[in-house]
């Protein structure tokens, strides 16, 4: 993504996600599909106990597309977002979860130990920007992560899908998360693809279990890609093989340089004669 197209460079989130932008999230089926896919993957990374309804936190829930996925999996959720227009779209969609208007950088306004997990789809990169003179991204991220840490239960995980702009942002986010007490790290799905590549920050409250495996990384070192082309070793030894087409062409070129009469190249040059001769 070129830097000019990043929405967080255009306006603060409460301004950027106005009525027109919010409407896209109910009408644009491609946007909806991507959001749903990423939420499903985030839910997989949460690795909640199966068939147990959980209470989840959706950070930057927007129009509640991700929340709908959580509902479909039988979970109850509470969503936080800074854009009123987006939350109004969520109300229109009649999501089951409860919605709260709040700025993630000001902290999570919940008491300790309540949630079984947290998901966040494409929201974290907004916190890396200073939209006001008083905003300090590192400070805001630390407040956010430390208050999130307390509001989660002991076995919980928090999964953030986000679009880091550069390696410095990844560094900034992971440093503040570790400082707040989280274990975990970054899982990159499809790292060799430009479009399907997705960053998931997997944070764990209690001692670090192994990070989940990223998708699309299997076939990297173990196999060699099949190619129909034969390996050619042209000019491997400096001089082409005698009687080969290259040898004949080179010979004609040399004779031309010597000023000798040489026939022009045609499609018959260096062709083998048919067997009659």
């Amino acid at each position: 993504m070129s830097s000019g197209r990043r929405p967080e460079h255009q306006a603060p989130p409460d301004i950027y996600y106005n009525e027109t932008e919010a409407k896209k999230y109910t009408q644009n089926s491609r946007m909806i599909e991507i959001q749903v896919q990423m939420t499903e993957r985030a839910l997989e990374l949460l690795s909640l106990p199966e068939d147990e309804p959980a209470l989840l936190l959706d950070l930057g829930c927007g129009s509640g597309l991700s929340g709908s996925v959580l509902e479909d999996n039988g979970h109850m959720w509470v969503g936080l977002d800074i854009s009123r227009a987006m939350l109004e779209v969520a109300l229109e969609r009649e999501v089951e979860g409860d919605l709260v208007l709040s700025d993630l950088g000001q902290g999570i306004p919940f008491r300790a130990g309540m949630f079984d997990g947290a998901v966040s789809i494409s929201a974290l990169q907004w916190l890396c920007n200073a939209d006001q003179a008083t905003h300090k991204p590192a400070k805001r991220l630390y407040k956010f992560f430390s208050m999130l840490y307390t509001s989660l239960s002991r076995t919980a995980r928090a999964i953030f899908q986000f679009y880091p702009e550069n390696p410095d942002q990844i560094e900034l986010v992971t440093t503040q998360a570790t400082k707040a007490g989280f274990f975990g790290g970054l899982v990159v799905d499809y790292p060799n693809s430009t479009k399907a590549k997705k960053y998931f920050l997997v944070l764990m409250v209690s001692s670090s279990a192994a990070l989940p495996k990223a998708l699309g990384t299997e076939s990297d070192n173990t196999t060699i890609a099949f190619s129909k082309d034969r390996a050619k070793f042209k000019k491997f030894h400096g001089k082409p093989l005698k009687k080969s087409k290259d040898w004949i062409l080179e010979k004609k070129e040399r004779r031309r340089r010597q000023g000798l009469a040489t026939r022009e190249e045609s499609k018959y040059t260096a062709r083998r004669r048919c067997g009659k001769f």
Binding site: G107, F110, R111
Partner: peptide, 13 residues
């Protein structure tokens, strides 16, 4: 706002 949310909300921010 459901009372479940009220039961968790605080103003410690």
């Amino acid at each position: 706002m459901k009372l479940l949310t009220h039961n968790m909300l605080s103003s410690k921010c």
